[in-house]
Design a protein around this nucleic acid. Sequence first.
DNA 1: ACCCAGGTGGCCC
DNA 2: GGGCCACATGGG
Length: 192
Amino acid sequence: MFEICAGAILTQNTAWRNVERALTALSGDKLLASEKIAAAGYGRLYRALRPAGYYRQKARRLKDFCRYTLKAHPEGLRGWFSGNAEALREELLSLKGIGPETADSILLYAAGKPKFVIDAYTRRIFVRLGFPDRREYGVWQRRFESSLPPDVRLYNEYHALLVALGKDYCKKTAPLCGKCPLKRMCAAARIN
DNA sequence: ACCCAGGTGGCCC
DNA sequence: GGGCCACATGGG
C-alpha cells in the first residue's frame, strides 16, 4: 500500500520504467515505509530517487507525505484510507506535491475508492475521439464518473486499457478501429 | 542533438 | 481563469 503511494508520487511526468528503478532502490535501502522515509536524510533519498527524475522535488514531496501520515494518522495507511473518499481526497490535495491525478491514483489503487483517474493518455486518446479539449481536470472526471458505475474493478480495468493503448496509440495517426478494446468503454460511457 | 515521459506549484497578467 | 516556467533522469 505504501509502495503504491510512493509510485503515484514518483510517476509524475515520468516514465514508469524509471519509477521502478527508484522503487527498487528504496526497497533495497529498506525505505519503503513512512517511518523510514520520514527519518531518512535527504542524501539517502536523493540517491534512491535519482533515476525517477525531479529527485530533489520528489524527495521533499515523499517526505512530506510520510510526515503528514505519521502525524495526522498514526494508525497507519490502512486506517486512514478506510475513511470517506471525498474527505481523503481533500486531505491529499492539501499536501504540496499532490495534485488531482496523484490524489486519485492513490484513492483508486491504494485506498480502493472508485475515483476515475484522468491522465495524459486518457486526454490524448479522448481528444482524438472527438472530446472537447477541456483543460479542467474536474470536467474530464465528471464526464467519466457520471457515465460509469462507481466500481473500483471497472475503473482499474479501463484505466489500465487506456495506459496500455496509449503507449502505442499516441504514436499512430489512424483513428480507433471498431476492434479497439476501448470500444466497450466508449459504449458504456456513451461516447460515439 | 534533439524530444518526450501516467504532474505540480509558483508566478504573472 | 489562463499562459508560461522550473523541476531532472532515461530512452527513442
